[in-house]
Each structure stands twice: as C-alpha cells, then as structure tokens.
Design a binder for these strands. Sequence first.
DNA 1: ATTGAAACGGAGAATGTCTCCGATTATATC
DNA 2: GATATAATCGGAGACATTCTCCGTTTCAAT
Lengths: 205, 205
Amino acid sequence: MPSPAIKRADARRNRGLILDAAKTAFARDGVDASLDEIARSAGVGPGTLYRHFPTREHLLCEVLHERQAVLLARRDEALAMPGAGEALRAWMTALGGYLGAFNGLPQPFIDAFEAQTSPLAVTCRTLITITGEFLSRAQAEGAARQSVSAPALFLSAVGAAFVEDKVADYGTTPELIEEIQAFGYLTGKAPDPSRSIHKAGASHD
Amino acid sequence: MPSPAIKRADARRNRGLILDAAKTAFARDGVDASLDEIARSAGVGPGTLYRHFPTREHLLCEVLHERQAVLLARRDEALAMPGAGEALRAWMTALGGYLGAFNGLPQPFIDAFEAQTSPLAVTCRTLITITGEFLSRAQAEGAARQSVSAPALFLSAVGAAFVEDKVADYGTTPELIEEIQAFGYLTGKAPDPSRSIHKAGASHD
DNA sequence: ATTGAAACGGAGAATGTCTCCGATTATATC
DNA sequence: GATATAATCGGAGACATTCTCCGTTTCAAT
C-alpha cells in the first residue's frame, strides 16, 4: 500500500529504497541532507530520485507519513482526556515531538505555508485545524485564554520545535520550553479583551 | 572607528563597502544572501570579502553591530521602568525586534552557541546574560515564574523570532505570539516545583 | 622614486541541486 | 518462450554557491 498507483515492480522497489535511505539520512543529517547522497545510498541514480520526488519537500512529506500516524494516535489519546486544557497541552507536546522528528524540520514546515505548491502545506493546514479543535474546546471550558488563536498557537509550537534541538547546548530542557509556552514566563494575567465580553468571570484576587 | 586596526586606506574603504553591501543584501534576501553577490555589488572580488570576513557569521556579526546599539538603548529604557515584570516584557520585545532584523537570523544565531568558534557566540551569551538580569529582578518581585531560566527564556525568544516573519501569512500577529510567550496559552497556574513533588505516581493501572 | 609588504581579485576546486536523454528492463501479448 | 513497447533507470553535465590560492597591483614609508 505504500505506492498503489505505481505499476512496475522496479519502480515500487526503488521508491521504497529511496524512502528508507531518506529516512536514515534525514534522521542523521537533518532535513538538509544531500539528495544525491540519499540516491547514492539507496543505490539509484539522482534522476530516479527526482522522478519519484520532484522536490525535497515531496520526499520529506512522504518520509513524515509514518510519523503522522503516530501523531494522530497521540491526538486520539489526547481527545480521550477528561480535561480540555490537559488535552490541549498533551496535543501541543505531541506536536512538538512531531516537529522535532528531524533536525531543521521547522524551517521547511513554516515555508510550506507561504508556498501553496508544497506538499507540506496541506499537512500544515491540517495540524492548524486540529490545534484549533483542541483550542476551542479548552477555551469553551475556560482552560485556554480567549485571545489565543489556532495559527498563533501552531506557530508557537513551530518556534518551540525550532529551538528544542538545542536546549541541551544551552543547559535547559524541552519540558521547560513547553512549560513557558503553556503558562508564560510572567506570573500575572494577560490583558484579555474578549474576557469581559463572554463571561462574567471577574473573579480574580 | 569601524576598523581601528586596519592600516591601509584601501582595505578600510573596501571593508566599509562590503559592510554596506551586506547590510542591503541581508535586509533584502535574508541571512542566506549570496556572499559572492555581496562582493560583486560592493565592487570587490570574492577573495577580498573572505579576507575581511572569513565566514558568513563574521560578516553578519559586524552588520549586526549597529542593531546592537539600538538594542542596548532599549535595554536601558527597560531598566528605567518601575516594574520588573514590565521591564522584562519590554526587554523580550526588544530582543524579538533584534532577532527579527533579518530574515532567517534566528538560525545562525542558535547555531552560534553550539560552535564556540562563531563570533556570534559571544553576542549570544551576552544576550542570555542580560535576559537573566531582567529575569532575576522580575522573579525577585514575584512577577516572573521561578522555574523559568535565562537560557530557556532566551531560546523562547529565538523561537518566537523564527516564526515572527511568517505571522502575516498565517493570519496572526507578532503581538499575539509575544503575548502567548508572556502569559501562556493556558489559564491555569504552572505546577510549581518549589512545593513538594509527588512522584512515582502510577496514573493508570 | 624606490621598495617591501599589504591588499586585491579572479580563476578554479569542491559541493550540491536538478535535468536531459540514450540505455535498460518489466510486463502484456502472442 | 519470444517479441514489442512503454515505463523506468542512471549518470553525465549545466548551473549555482562557497571558499581558496596565488600572481598582480597598490599603498605608504623612506
């Protein structure tokens, strides 16, 4: 089922070999791994690689597919959680894990959105949609702040993923970065304009 | 005194021409602008550029110097603020502005820390130190959460800068990203590690 | 004006992306 | 099994970019 539309066996085999090599190379060298090198280690010519995957993004997108299955499983786990805030946080953690799959992944991911031609763009939009679902639920429960939007939250996750590769060098941890995202670095409450509109929850200290 | 140690007039002049060209190129094409193209538009050969600035980071670092003056001025403004939380937030905003000076700046910046050879590394460490000063003050006042660390906060700012170029494409704003950083996306309070930690918790059987 | 050293600049090596097209090979058909 | 044909392969090579080497030029001290 990896490539249903491909007729010839050699093409299907080569496609698989390329994907395997790419998976290894991206994991080792990050998303900027040399494509010709990937072709070489897959035992095919560069032309074969580029026929199967016209751009680096196409290849990357395919390689990410199995990671997406994991991510969606984690989404389902999160959906089963009782608290919407807890669920949102679990989803954000899962999203961070996905975006940190390969070194440098946030860059092509964020570029994808601008260029609609990229196969990553649809994935990108899907993730924003899912994020929005968790966010809406959490906002309805009062567990998430009203002024937060799904795109902004997604971008925050991308930004966190961008730096999470390097936390060790800086003597900190991914957990702390995520905690800052979730709760902020300040202790006070945000000036929340939509707060007074919806609810009468003016119960603060 | 842009180049005090340089003896010959032509060398000093060329250095200035290269810096001007680089400033323009980085502003227009981002930090990945072609160095040979910068040399060309400065009217010098590639060899001349690389003699003055052995790596892209060296060139970038020099170009950033005038931006640093602006940043330090903003730090002083922030220092004059009455509230330490307010000051910290102002500093984080200023930091975001600095890191967003050129498209793609966060990448070399974050790479600099790993590789101690980069001239950006010292800038990087300086910024972490300054961030730490604002943070400590805010924590002493109770305006910032205790578990936040200076490196983590700096990395958060870098992550935010990474995505701030793209906020428009995603239909959101830099302000919202910064607000999420400051106050979090959740409404609740963070688990505070200063209290006794309950561990070995078997959540499900 | 002479001269030694500093600086210049461009050819080119190394690396990486991506394309073109003649050679190869799988598969349907007989 | 042999043949035909169309899909697929693969690598030479065009192009871009980084960075170096070294013969030539230019400055400035005398």
